[in-house]
Design a protein around this nucleic acid. Structure first.
Lengths: 236, 236
DNA sequence: GTGAATCTTCGTGAAATGTCGATGAGGCAT
DNA sequence: ATGCCTCATCGACATTTCACGAAGATTCAC
């Protein structure tokens, strides 16, 4: 997934810069590894070139999150305008391709999102479990491929960085296998969304399974592409 | 590898906080997910509790990299003092165990490190190639297991976030297989270190292979544990 | 409902950031 | 050597951060 990479790269860059003893040098390293001159960066940021230089040379020892974020985002945007050459390079280095068919999208929120809001955005109705919960992220998973391709240890990767998330399984038939997989696995999500199925078609065992692990189960018949793009556009 | 996880987690946290629209909320999310009260965090940071609250509540809209870094580090340290319960939880979610036998250590620098300094720290001598280069990170790889266990796409993961790095292959016999693997693979490191071998024992083909991809090759007979701990302790 | 623990709000002052524009230094083309 | 591009340095000034401590709000146990 394209924009997943961008986000991960951005986070990596920002993290490294923030933790560095000299954020300036780290900033410089990334700008240079994208082959962008200070001047161009300054232009896109609508500041004078000396500003960039001041940061990189360390005159400002502890730049705020706001500018760090803006700079990282701008570096990435400039590269995107040029066809995303460097972003793709990093993406290739990063990803083993198997993720592509299994994990359609994965994202973390920095602050909690109410489950009811989340359900609204993806057009989901409650099947069972409480709705007064929050989630910190979501993963969209091709259920068939996940079961075919993932080993048990790899299966944990669908949880990203937090188990307090929604797992959206796409094109399920009855929803039984995803729930069984979760049952036998040590980590539990807050919520499971079964995509491509109506509440009536759901396997009768599911409420029982969900109850055991205190998981809320939702259903949606909205198609996968729409779900992904709605979730992406949101800032909550 | 233990401390690799800590570092990666720290980077992830810092990145997320820095990129967040409201760094305060992100900060809060992480503190809470480690189950640490504001007061305790404040105590360890030697500031008054209201400081933490001011950040989390967003009075400071763009906290500097310095405090963000300090807070992240403190959260992690507090958890370590308590036995690292949450760090381990995140580690489990993150890693498929196969890495353990293949990648002994992997690290990125925020700024360039001179190859000659790097060689000095790991007690390596030059076999061929230029020494007036810099690296941005290193990976310590068990050469045998890498070849046995990694698929070609997984092999790319040894590059971490930058190819401008040193790849340290441990316990090589002649050093031929690692160099061949690099030859047939699209990404090239700056430098290859062959561990557990003296310059005289190196396979005669190696200088030729290295020349092709303009890679500097070093040798060291220092043992793996020592190399890893020397590299870890360094701040350059 | 009294206390303890946790967290929020706010006024305040010293210090640092965030920005500009002017100037200077290196490098690499012509 | 004459530009041109890239980058570093610096003084100046408005805006924020950063940290404190006092005081108020919440929540939970007893």
């Amino acid at each position: 997934m394209k924009s997943g990479v961008r986000h991960q790269l951005a986070e990596k860059m920002a993290g490294e810069i923030t933790l560095s003893d000299s954020p300036g040098q780290a900033l410089k390293k990334w700008r240079q590894s994208f082959n962008i001159p200070q001047g161009l960066l300054a232009e896109h940021l609508e500041v004078s070139p000396s500003v960039i230089s001041d940061y990189e040379s360390g005159r400002r020892k502890s730049p705020g999150t706001a500018i760090v974020g803006k700079i990282v985002d701008t570096i990435l945007s400039i590269d995107e305008d040029n066809g995303g050459r460097f972003i793709n390079k990093f993406a290739k280095i990063l990803y083993s391709e198997f993720d592509e068919d299994v994990i359609y999208d994965i994202h973390e929120y920095a602050s909690p999102v109410a489950l009811s809001d989340f359900a609204g955005v993806i057009g989901a109705t409650t099947l069972c479990g409480p709705m007064d919960q929050t989630v910190y992220g979501y993963t969209v998973i091709n259920s068939l491929n996940a079961i075919l391709q993932l080993s048990s240890s790899e299966f944990n990767r669908i949880y990203g960085w937090s188990t307090e998330r929604a797992l959206i399984f796409t094109e399920v038939s009855t929803g039984k296998s995803p729930m069984v997989a979760i049952r036998v696995t040590p980590f539990k999500p807050r919520c499971v969304v079964l995509q491509g199925i109506s509440p009536g078609e759901v396997h009768p065992l599911i409420p029982g399974l969900a109850e055991r692990d205190r998981i809320t189960v939702l259903c949606t018949e909205v198609d996968v592409e729409t779900i992904i793009s709605s979730l992406r556009g949101k800032s909550w």
